[in-house]
Amino acid sequence: MLIVLVLLSAVLFAVMTISTNQRGAMRNSIIGLLLVVMIGSIGLLFTNDNQHWGMKTVTTTTEKPLTSAAALSGAKLLLYQPLGNGHEKIFIYKNSTTQKKVAHTTADVTTTSSVTKTSSQSAKLVTKTSRYVYRNGFYRFLFAGVGNNHEFKARHHEFKVGRDWVILSTTQAKKLQQQAKTAQAKMKTQLAAAVKAKMTAAIKQNPQMTTEQQQALQKQYTTAAKQQAQQQLLAQLQKESLK
């Protein structure tokens, strides 16, 4: 509506100003009125464009599951790429284990991110998106044609993860992956030696164990040793994340 008023008042103002057929107070009053309408309409359009006058903010919330962004000996990782002074970060994540390519947050002033650790076993990404919409039908009619209804305002990503998750920079993750590859063979040898020592002690204590019992016991010791190694890795990752 305001766009029509600007165009119409501008045309009539030009016609009335150029025309020499009419003189006097009536003509001047009409020219003044058209000028007020034109300037007022332009002012309202400017205010709407810069201050979103006649609009309100509406926020929608979406939730998506979250899985580890990288495979590192079974650890649950949320990665980020620091920007500038390190306070701003681009988070790197996956929404499912079948997802081949990682997703990431955007780097702009309208997008923010945070991490919340919870007691829940399931991790999720909660995204809140805010947009400008007109307060009612009157403002939609008034600013018809402007095209800024549902204009994007801001977006916030909240990564809700369990306490066993580790948040690392991409640099830290690459460093730990290299260390894990180097230590993998050594860890395998240590695990085998530890299980063998326990099996030797168990057989010495109970020489009457059957083959089935020995196999079950060896499986139990192997599982326990792997869990211990996993806990050590998690502690190392958590220590690294605090640097």
Rank of each mutant, 00 (worst) to 15 (best):
F91M: 05
F91E: 02
I92C: 05
K94Y: 02
S96Y: 09
S96Q: 05
S96F: 08
T97C: 05
Q99H: 11
K100C: 05
K100F: 10
K100L: 14
K101Y: 13
K101A: 14
V102M: 14
V102K: 11
H104N: 13
H104W: 00
T105Y: 04
T106G: 07
T106W: 05
A107F: 03
A107P: 03
T110E: 13
T111A: 04
T111H: 14
T112M: 10
S113H: 05
S113Y: 03
T116N: 12
T116W: 01
K117C: 05
T118W: 01
S119D: 15
S119C: 06
S120D: 15
Q121P: 01
Q121M: 07
S122N: 13
S122R: 10
K128M: 11
K128Q: 15
K128Y: 07
T129A: 12
T129R: 13
S130M: 03
R131W: 08
R131L: 12
Y132I: 10
V133D: 11
Y134Q: 05
Y134S: 00
Y134P: 00
R135A: 10
R135E: 14
R135Y: 09
N136I: 04
F138D: 02
Y139M: 11
R140Q: 03
R140E: 02
F141V: 01
F141N: 05
A144K: 01
G145S: 04
G145R: 03
V146I: 09
V146D: 03
V146E: 02
G147C: 00
G147M: 00
G147T: 01
G147F: 04
N149K: 00
N149A: 01
H150F: 14
H150Y: 14
F152H: 06
K153P: 07
A154V: 01
H156E: 15
H156V: 14
F159A: 02
F159C: 04
F159L: 00
F159Y: 04
K160H: 15
K160N: 14
K160L: 15
G162M: 03
G162D: 02
D164A: 07
D164F: 05
D164N: 12
W165F: 06
V166S: 06
V166Q: 04
V166E: 05
V166G: 06
I167C: 07
S169N: 08
T170Q: 15
Q172P: 12
Q172H: 10
A173T: 12
A173Q: 15
A173I: 09
K174F: 07
Q177R: 10
Q178I: 05
Q179L: 09
A180I: 12
K181Q: 14
K181E: 15
Q184P: 01
A185H: 09
A185T: 13
K186G: 08
M187N: 12
K188P: 00
T189L: 14
Q190I: 03
L191R: 11
A192Q: 13
A192N: 11
